[in-house]
Amino acid sequence: MVTFVLNGLEISVEKGTTILEAARFYGIGIPTLCYNEALSPYGACRLCLVEIGVPPRSRLVTSCTYEATEGLVVRTHSERVVKTRQMLIEMYLATCPSSKVIQDLASKHHVTRVRFRQKQEECILCGLCVRMCEEQMQAGAIGYTGRGDSRRISTFFDKKSEDCRFCGGCQYICPACQARCQGPQEKEAVCNACLNLAPPCLEHFDHVMCYMDPCVACEEKSGREPRKTCCK
């Protein structure tokens, strides 16, 4: 067993447990896009970042790949983490606004604006499909091609794959190609229809003070108008 500190709480987990697994076990929500329990962790979406160590010597690591070690100090919702996450989600929105998963993340993490130039990508290169195809379907029909911003997912030499069995696993697991609940909006990239209300505690403390999901009670107490929703 390994004992470490998670958001100030001393907990013990089995050796080899990642921070993400431990946090989820203890009910602390960490967002992910490229993680799936059934697949090997990849660490590409960066949403599961947590802060380890004590500032100023702390750093952000992906909790999906980082195994808890003895005495490690982990903060899953520090100011640095929350800000970085929000910025990432804003960039995801600017890239792939048609994904419901991303729109939901935006609402949940109170990302209400997109300051970048709007793009309409259909893929965020989380690589879930590639790992699904290889690890679960044992096919290995798809992989990455290209480097940097020309990176994309394709079959070998862009030819029709002989290894593909048309199982649809890649489509099933894709977080990006799900339709948005409201359908695509032309102008405004952020849907925020089901906005989760911002945790007001973050303004006073350098940390989210509760992990209730969503934290409506807190919001109502602060006397702010809840955002109007589309689902009326």
Partner: peptide, 20 residues
């Protein structure tokens, strides 16, 4: 931007946005 491998989103997209 030319040399980023593109594996992780923050580097691939972040550098692209900085360039923009």
């Amino acid at each position: 931007r030319d040399e980023s491998c593109g594996k992780c989103f923050s580097c691939r997209e972040g550098i692209l946005r900085m360039k923009e």
